[in-house]
Design a binder for these strands. Structure first.
Lengths: 348, 348
DNA sequence: CTGTTAGCGCATTCAT
DNA sequence: ATGAATGCGCTAACAG
């Protein structure tokens, strides 16, 4: 029982009466070690409750046992689900996940990359939507480039024309289109969109999909049909309040995410309107618990998306050279109780 | 543009034509450095996109810029909310969060501590419930003890008589009792409990609270009134199916968490029963989105709990010596639409 | 198969 | 105020 702050490999070696190298080898199993020696080392290590210093290991050129995940907000079930997928495969590779939250602040996102770079994460996953901002993209690319040169892998979810990183790309646009068509099929003709800030590519893509789908059906979405808030539950609530205040006559409210949809439904309820009797509401993502409340939405395999992002980043087949592989993931329209045929128009 | 894998401080120093020490000092601002030199260093660093190697820094005895959070499953909104709180304060301290998921496996939890120990996290937060298992507790204590001796801080949420770590303790028992009393006040007399595995202390405490509250009202909860499943949405669903299959005549189903309650409500719905008309259902936690669906529950300030756990761990006032401070957090009964007065008994 | 030794990149003494 | 030198704990050559 030394009084030193940490038990080191040297302590173990001394206690087992072997050399440092032997102790290291015994512990790592990299080279054969005489059985009795290995036993001695192992039991000495256990005895002393030895834990290798991961920093020293990393520095000595050994492992890189961490991956970084950057998301906007882990309490958003979208990111939670993706992160869960990441953690599953990280776990199976013996990797530890370092989680950074940006709260959708572009500068923070840049800073997170820098931090993860400092930690020599073996991979960095950008799971949050990109920002539609040329200058930002450039700075991000500049931050990522040296990271890669140092052997770091990068994968992104949903983004980034210019980033040419391995990408898992949910088909937001196509899903949105299909959803709109389904709603049209139900008989809806008057739509409104409740959305987050369109500088987020995810949001922009979904809204673009709504607009395209509608246009294809001969319905134009004007600016006055779009209500934007923050990209979360409260944003959905506020945007819907604005929609109500504007006395919008939509029979179907398309929201940019399940989370926003929850806010939308609440706002509608608070105004005495019921879903879907008075108005239909759709979400996007099909996040776990919200699913139980019967929201019509576009289902995305979130957990798998996270898992694939890490797999892609870790997979060397791309060759450390030719990166920029894109894995497309399509969404599936899930019709549930939050949507119904519109009532006949009230007056004429 | 060297071709070396990483730009090091030495590269910066050389490029700025100063010594390594000066470069280090200029970057860290620890000692005064002549202004022009500092400028040169800074711009050289920027030029080369230098990022300090956190491992080297940590090894050299500098920083400890990470904290470890161990939870059962980040996609559970309970943990997501707590983790969000942790991340907020971590962020404000310039710390990076390393997230480990155990999926409620005691052995994995032990392994996670070991990993985090290896990473020399400045603090380890055990946010998941403890396991009611003497041997496990002992092993956990044995793992934590050397970590602390090395200067590591430990804080836990909800647990551990024997661990004597700084603790943030939600009053699960009291909240459960109060909830039961409120339901009794509504007129309910026949209760059932839908719960997770009672080897989790959180679950055990809540069920104990239900039982105590009921006992205080002269109602006994027998084993046949308790239906256990996994501590998640599906567990709630399955346990409720079992309850239904057993033709339990409860007018009020008390579940061990909001997440389980969601499963319970779904199972009830699938069986053609509506909430609260046919049966009342309660949750526990008041997690964000579920909140919007009007579940009666016991509200816990999850995010604050996470934040306090980290603050406690980081706060040295305890003195590196006398640890084991306990911050109690009480819950608040929130009556919402998932509960109502029971209907008059069907027959007699 | 084992022991000795040289760094990994940095912060920090210690001398200037 | 600056520079040279030491060591953090470990792995991976390198010799024996």
């Amino acid at each position: 029982m030394s009084d030193r702050p940490h038990v080191t490999l040297e302590d173990v070696a001394r206690s087992a009466e072997v050399s440092l190298a032997t102790a290291s080898r015994a512990l790592n199993g990299t080279t054969r070690v005489r059985d009795d020696l290995r036993e001695r080392v192992l039991s000495a290590a256990a005895e002393l409750a030895y834990t290798p210093n991961a920093h020293a290991q990393a520095l000595a050129g050994g492992s890189r046992r961490t991956v970084g995940v950057i998301c906007h907000d882990i309490s958003d079930p979208y990111f939670a689900a993706i992160t869960r997928g990441v953690m599953r495969v990280a776990d199976s590779h013996g990797l530890l996940v370092m989680l950074a939250g940006t709260f959708a602040d572009p500068d923070r996102e840049l800073a997170c990359v820098s931090t993860l770079r400092a930690q020599r994460a073996s991979a960095i996953l950008l799971t949050g939507s990109a920002f539609e901002d040329r200058a930002w993209e450039r700075r991000m690319a500049a931050e990522l480039e040296p990271y890669r040169r140092g052997g770091g892998r990068v994968a992104v979810v949903t983004r980034h024309r210019s980033l040419k990183a391995d990408t898992v790309a949910p088909d937001n646009r196509g899903g949105a289109r299909a959803l709109v068509e389904a709603m049209h099929g139900l008989g809806h003709r008057r739509f409104a969109v409740v959305t987050g800030p369109t500088r987020l590519t995810t949001v922009a893509d979904r809204v673009a999909g709504f607009r395209e789908g509608l246009a294809g059906l001969g319905i134009e979405l004007s600016e006055r049909d779009v209500f934007a808030g923050s990209f979360d539950r409260d944003g959905g609530y506020e945007a819907t309040k604005a929609l109500l205040a504007a006395k919008h006559k939509a029979t179907c409210v398309l929201t940019a995410s399940d989370v926003m949809a929850v806010g939308a439904v609440s706002a509608l309820g608070a105004a005495g309107l019921s879903v879907p009797e008075d108005v239909s509401v759709t979400g996007f993502d099909d996040v776990p618990l919200v699913r139980d409340f019967g929201l019509t939405t576009v289902g995305l395999p979130l957990e798998r998306i996270g898992a694939e992002a890490l797999e892609l980043a870790l997979d060397d087949a791309g060759g450390g050279g030719a990166r920029g592989r894109v894995r497309r993931v399509s969404g599936e329209v899930l019709l549930r109780g939050s949507t119904a045929k519109p009532r006949r128009r009230r007056r004429g």
